[in-house]
């Protein structure tokens, strides 16, 4: 199992800072200046106002498991060795949802509502894909 074989993220003008920060073990989300609410995935404007009034902030990296699935079907050549693999839907402390894998734990131990925190173990092409596991 290797994060290096993962499908590459599609980097665009909006999510580039997110992936750059992840290389330095930082989890960024955008925060709306007018409402104080955070949002993800990265976008040109705040979905709460439609205006380009936002700042990047470093998220706490903490959240709770909202739901999760376990893939048995193969969709990505580079992930065949990881089957069956979990994907968790994490509600970040800052509000937005993030989809991620469950790291340092077995999906058998996943319980909805459990506290999770982020890790930065690696990714394809020198990029880093944030992962979530039991809160540390």
């Amino acid at each position: 199992m290797s994060l290096e074989n993962r499908p590459k993220p599609v980097i665009d003008n909006w999510n580039r800072p997110f992936f750059e920060a992840a290389k330095n073990d930082k989890l960024l989300v955008q925060k709306c200046r007018d409402t104080g609410q955070c949002f993800f995935p990265p976008a040109p404007v705040s979905p709460f106002t439609g205006r380009p009034h936002w700042d990047w902030i470093e998220a706490s990296g903490k959240g709770e498991l909202w739901s999760f699935v376990v893939f048995y079907q193969s969709y990505f050549e580079g992930m065949k060795d990881e089957l069956p693999y979990p994907v968790g839907m994490v509600k970040l402390a800052e509000g937005p949802f993030m989809l991620t894998n469950l790291w340092d734990m077995s999906p058998d131990d996943a319980v909805i509502g459990m506290k999770l925190s982020v890790r930065f173990p690696g990714g394809p092409d020198g990029l880093v894909l944030p992962q979530f596991g039991p809160e540390v």
Binding site: K8, P9, Q73
Partner: peptide, 12 residues
């Protein structure tokens, strides 16, 4: 399923 998307690097 498969192909590039926001969450494909996580296998979603």
């Amino acid at each position: 399923g498969g192909g590039d998307s926001q969450w494909s690097p996580w296998g979603m």
